[in-house]
Nucleic acid binder design. Structure first.
Lengths: 341, 341
DNA sequence: TTGTACGCGTTATCAG
DNA sequence: CTGATAACGCGTACAA
């Protein structure tokens, strides 16, 4: 230890020959300080290299300037991109982001909801995967919460909503409009698990129904967890099962990229024999061969709206909760371009 | 406001009919507390829903339990993967990660080095891009610093080192051993900028020299910033320039993926006509067509060693600085497999 | 416009 | 083994 003690507000005050209050006024950019005094104090601050202490300030004001971001996995390009935009957005509000990874595990998600240990963040932006509505309602922590993703229950918290049913509906409808009738879905995970899987399956089924196409349970394949390798395996099993199919709708782009690999290895022509579409529009989808048609979900809008909601909630903690919808759009690329087939 | 005041240590103490110190002892798992007393206090804690306050604790102990991570860009899969591992590693030390994005901008990097605003982290893990040695030496902030990446100056701080010269040397030597002689490099950014570019160029040149191959300035192409699109453009310009080449060594995988796209569009056969190798081993490199040969840099080891160094420094702030080397290895894949050509 | 004094919630010292 | 009390650094009534 020993070497360098911290420079305190009182040290600056002593050095400048003024009171603590005056230094504090200068540091916090208070209005009514004489310019000459301001300059004098600023010089003392610079000379001593004073920098305000976060904990003292937090203890006094109750604000940390930190926002928690809880996502399943930063290694997932979708969440990495989202995190990047949220970090950038946070700076506009003079805040910083504390990252938590849940692994999509329910216990982990619940632990984070209850604030894991310490009141350290002013708010939490949370992209849940396995957590239940009751967990959300039962949470002990009272800090502002913004939920990202599937809209499930009622007005538990502010939300930035992704209409997965609509997204899936549009994706599958695009395949149908391309003349496909035997459309497989890769990405079912079972009834008891994530909303996102269920919603995307619902959208898939509704699109089939709207087009008067009968559903075939053989075409709905489990993928768990959602990833490139699991997607590839599921596609291989689909092929091996001998079921007839002319298109694959995938729960996300990672699954779709895995499916593309499987199809290529089995010498299927995409999109000639089989059309493929994913969801997320991760960067790679634009560059793979063939390029992957997908549903773009506006992550920049998600980031901006998350902080808009959070900021509003910090200003007035007791207002009504709000839900903001996230724009999405079909991206037509090679994997579903029947003109090329 | 109004609704829920925080539950303090003293509230628990009053509720349990004991002193603050005793409650604190229980909370912090102190040794010498009677089991019956411990249970009694724990019950009071649960009933009141008490949870310790981070700022008060920090103010007293001087520890925040937060570690800053400063990287150029989380959207880059390399840094996203690194961040993911660091977040996971942090939890083993009961710490959390605060993410900062520098954009590789020097001013931004310097600002983060001086602690931007508040003493809020116990240490900083920093992957610099543009910052100079003098900036590192001049930094005001005294918190423990772990530098990630190119080893440049002396013992400014603890380091987790990447031997970029050696990495590039191995990559280019692999191409040479495959019979290539006209090897282009995509990823030069000019003399005044990042160390990583300079070091990888040095490795490239040394490998050529070791094999007795003359260097050709025409083959060294600028790419800035390092990305997929810029890589593709640089490859297109290389092709358009009419220079003869039979291999491309790329500064990183993103550039290489862009180059692969350009080569495919111009109907080059990879690896038949042109072999390609990158650096980083991002996930996509394994799945693209043809799969991309690359140099794997052990990011898991980097994450573990970063925290090892940080922890050591927190324990003994005045010890000698250490530099730990990061393992790396050649990953042979389709893009350089001459047997397939 | 500037100075004084207090409290935010925690941990550490030291006496009992 | 437990209790009283003093810091930690800051912001802010309130007084001047």
């Amino acid at each position: 230890m020993a070497v360098s003690k911290h420079v305190r507000l009182s040290d600056v005050a002593a050095h400048a020959g003024v009171s603590i209050k005056t230094v504090s006024n200068v540091v916090n950019g208070f209005q009514h300080v004489r310019p000459s005094m301001r300059q004098h104090v600023q010089q003392a601050i610079d000379e001593l290299g004073y920098r305000p202490d976060a904990s003292g300030r937090t203890l006094r004001t109750g604000r940390t300037g930190l926002v928690g971001l809880a996502v399943p996995d930063l290694g997932n390009p979708y969440f990495a991109d989202l995190a990047q935009r949220l970090v950038a957005e946070a700076r506009k509000y003079d805040m910083r982001l504390l990252i938590e990874q849940t692994g999509g595990d329910r216990d982990e998600e619940v632990a984070i909801l209850s604030g894991r240990g310490a009141r350290m963040v002013d708010g939490l932006i949370f992209s849940p995967l396995s957590v239940h509505d009751e967990d959300l309602r039962n949470r002990k922590d009272q800090i502002p919460l913004v939920l990202l993703g599937e809209h499930e229950g009622g007005d538990i918290a502010d939300r930035v909503d992704i209409d997965s049913v609509g997204v899936a509906f549009d994706a599958v409808t695009h395949l149908i409009e391309g003349g496909r009738r035997r459309i497989a879905m890769l990405g079912w995970v079972g009834t008891n698990t994530t909303h996102v899987s269920r919603n995307r399956r619902d959208g898939y089924l509704r699109a089939l129904e709207a087009a008067g196409i009968a559903r075939d349970p053989e075409l709905i394949r489990v993928v768990h967890p959602w990833g490139r390798l699991t997607g590839k395996t599921a596609a291989e099993q689909l092929i091996a099962s001998g079921v007839e199919f002319d298109a694959i709708f995938c729960g996300n782009d990672a699954i779709a990229l895995g499916a593309l690999t499987a199809l290529r290895e089995k010498n299927f022509n995409v999109p000639g024999d089989v059309a493929v579409i994913g969801i997320d529009n991760i960067e790679e989808s634009e560059f793979c061969v063939p390029s992957l048609s997908t549903m773009a979900i506006d992550r920049q809008a998600m980031a901006e709206r998350s902080f808009k909601l959070l900021h509003r909630r910090l200003e007035s903690p007791d207002g009504e909760t709000a839900t903001l919808a996230t724009p999405y759009a079909l991206i037509r690329r090679g994997s579903s371009n029947t003109a090329e087939g």
